[in-house]
């Protein structure tokens, strides 16, 4: 690692005042320290935010839940409020990383983890995300793990998070704090597509800090399912993952949420496809129709064409199992 100075601010404002182009915030460090070892990240100043009071999980006056940015992934997945009201989120978190990493990784940091594209990690190769303008070897190279939706000529990387796929489906709200004060970002707007600026993963400004994630009070607990397909049974990044959440009344879908992981630069949601599911009786035909509609725009690369059929099958299965689910956590993937 390149030498850096270490700071541990005692307040949010102090933390934000220390931010700058050569600084990085650190909480769990599970991704940042790794990137620093690989020389992908070389901050001159590290700002340890673990002393800030952002560690609570609390009910909001509106009946939702507010998750402090420093809550660990493990504590979040196993919190009684999350297990009872947002089992989709618990399923997604427990499908990701390892128990050790989940004990370390923070909720806010999970949103900010970088792609696991091999070329992004390998400083011996070009990468537009790491070094804007240098090129994208993945487009013509090893791209089995890469995006099939929303990619650009400059970048075909995917967002690696499982948690974020569930947060997208649950329409979470990201609370951030910066020099100008606090603001809220709807989850769908938080991460961005690569376009010609793939170096920017999200809408967060350099001097802004995530303080919490708010889950709205929506009744998706009874019918939800997170399915993750990967190269081994556990502890691997998703080839494709699907978060499906439904509100069903007498066999008719009242509200539908569908988010995909492992297929794009951000958790992929298509409001038109969700609208297509709403107001219709749940059936395999309907789910198949939704899957085909969502994947219509898919543009697979040389090595990841299999992701299109994998995603299609995973969507149909996730929606079917969400439909059939009861109020329990269900079998973990």
């Amino acid at each position: 690692m390149t030498p850096f100075s270490y700071h541990k601010p005692a307040s949010l404002d102090e933390a934000v005042s220390l931010a700058g182009p050569s600084s990085r915030f650190i909480a769990g460090g599970t991704n940042l320290v790794d990137l620093m070892k690989e020389n992908v990240e070389r901050p001159e100043h590290l700002i340890d935010i673990t002393g800030l009071a952002l560690k609570a999980i609390e009910e909001t006056p509106e009946g939702g839940v507010m998750i402090g940015a420093l809550v660990s992934n493990a504590d979040l997945a196993w919190h009684p409020l999350v297990e009872a009201r947002y089992p989709l989120l618990a399923q997604a978190i427990l499908a990701g990383a390892s128990p050790q990493l989940r004990n370390m990784a923070s909720t806010g940091g999970n949103l900010l983890q970088r792609t696991r594209c091999y070329y992004f990690y390998d400083t011996g190769t070009p990468c537009n995300k790491r070094e804007p303008g240098s090129g994208c070897p993945a487009r013509q190279g090893l791209n089995r793990m890469h995006a099939i939706l929303g990619a650009s000529d400059d970048c075909v990387a995917t967002h690696p998070s499982d948690m974020c796929v569930a947060l997208a489906a649950l329409a979470a709200v990201v609370h951030v704090h910066g020099p100008a004060g606090a603001r809220q970002i709807p989850f769908a707007d938080f991460h961005r597509l690569p376009g010609d600026t793939p170096q920017r993963d999200n809408q967060l400004a350099q001097d802004e800090l995530i303080t919490g994630i708010e889950l709205p009070a929506e009744p998706f607990a009874a019918h939800c399912r997170y399915i993750k397909v990967r190269d081994r049974a556990s502890y691997a990044f998703a080839l494709v993952s699907v978060a499906a959440a439904l509100q069903i009344e007498k066999g008719v879908i009242r509200e539908a949420r569908l988010a995909l992981g492992g297929v794009a630069h951000k958790p992929w949601r298509d409001p038109a496809v969700e609208a297509l599911l709403q107001g219709k009786p749940a059936s395999t035909e309907l789910f198949t129709h939704a899957a085909d509609a969502l994947l219509q725009a898919a543009k697979p690369l040389a090595q990841n064409g299999f992701k299109v059929s994998l995603a299609r099958n995973a969507i149909i299965r996730a929606l079917s199992e969400a439909c059939a689910a009861d109020n329990s956590l269900g079998e973990m993937q």
């Binding site: 650190i26 599970t30 673990t50």
Partner: peptide, 11 residues
């Protein structure tokens, strides 16, 4: 349980 390799001692 944590991974000591990804933990900065100073933290």
């Amino acid at each position: 349980r944590i991974n000591a390799c990804l933990t900065l001692a100073v933290m």
